[in-house]
Design a protein around this nucleic acid. Sequence first.
DNA 1: TCTGGGGTCCTAGGACCC
DNA 2: TCTGGGGTCCTAGGACCC
Length: 425
Amino acid sequence: VVAIVEGSTGRAILHVDMDAFYAAVEVLVDPSLAGKPVIVGGSGGRGVVASCSYEARSYGIHSAMPSARARRLCPHAVFVDGRHDLYQEHSRRLHQVLTSFTPLVEGIALDEAFLDVTGVARLWGTGPQIATAIRARVLAECGLRCSVGVAPSKFLAKLASEAAKPRPGPPGRPPAPGPGVKVVAPGEELSFLRPLPVGALWGVGPATRRRLDRFGIRTVGDLAALPLETLVGAVGEAHGTHLHGLSWGRDSRAVEPDRAPKSVGHEETYAGDHHRGETLHDEAVRLSDGVSRRLRAAGMAGRTVTLKVRFASFRTITRSRTLPAPVDAGTILARVATELLAGVDPSPGVRLLGVSVSNLVAGQAKQLALEDALGGPDPAPADLVDGQGHRRRFGDRAVGPATLLRGAEGLALKRPSDQPWGPSG
DNA sequence: TCTGGGGTCCTAGGACCC
DNA sequence: TCTGGGGTCCTAGGACCC
């Protein structure tokens, strides 16, 4: 098996996935919880399950389920509010163990990572041997259990780790331990894949599943039999091409350690809806300060500020602005976020507010004066669209005919032929 | 059952540049 | 005078993942 795994494609990829991570950490720090249905997540009226023990899963509880429903399914479950810092600390220890095997570790969540162990066979042995060793070391050094998938590609390794998981027992009974390590060897890809439900593939969520369902596609094997053009027509170019390849076991994505973050944000769902602009203004400032702190702690800054608003109806909108230079200061983020908020009518009721920063760059922000970042002190609404304000904000190159035509009456020119600059200007 | 908070990636249209 | 095609940036929204 080993020779085959590392033979034809030359890659040995591991996917390490902690078993019920948050719940397991809670049991670790409070052993009296062992063997009980433990549910981690917001227990408030609008909370959902973030993680739960296998004992809880035996009642049909799973992550993302509203906590209220989970409580109905298992009234004697122990509810614990999430402690992110604690999980982060245990995640760091996990990564120490993983990187002691190879530097090629790509963390994809606190409790999950890919490893490319192709090049460390002389040091640590074959993929399956390393998988077994990792499980032992993680248990010994972190006190936690994990499941490991071994395969020639990332997505097969991920599906394999799922197959290695424990299974919940009947309600009130202990879970059945899983194999812990599952190997998908080259040559076995298609026989492993074909019977799986399409929803098992990474990237097939409820919406895609509904679309595929209309074609009678239930399993990965069904998907593989669908002509590429039909699939692309149903789910789009990039997605269709990607899924078609996956259904035939093709996935050449590399394990990428040290991926730089693309955005940093905070959002909060309120216990009750907010209807007043002033309250939301204060919330936007608070969220901006939190984002700023995290940006600065990471030594990053970003140019695009995005405000997210979810209404009582669950309709969600975003409003964003891209600044001429990266910023990380709370004052500037708050200023932009509140300006964006001013364009939103909160009267239907707002259940969630979020602030995030993207277009990130590493290193110290080139600190702009507030005025430079925003394009002028306390700009009037007209200033946002008139040519001069726009030019101050985004630079000369951003002012074209359309911008001027949109501009405030009396300030903007009416026709492109009235442009005051020449073709090269 | 009434839907978290942290993210990533893709699409599509408008504007703009060359 | 009218028209063009490729590439990039920006905004908004949506699907998806853990």
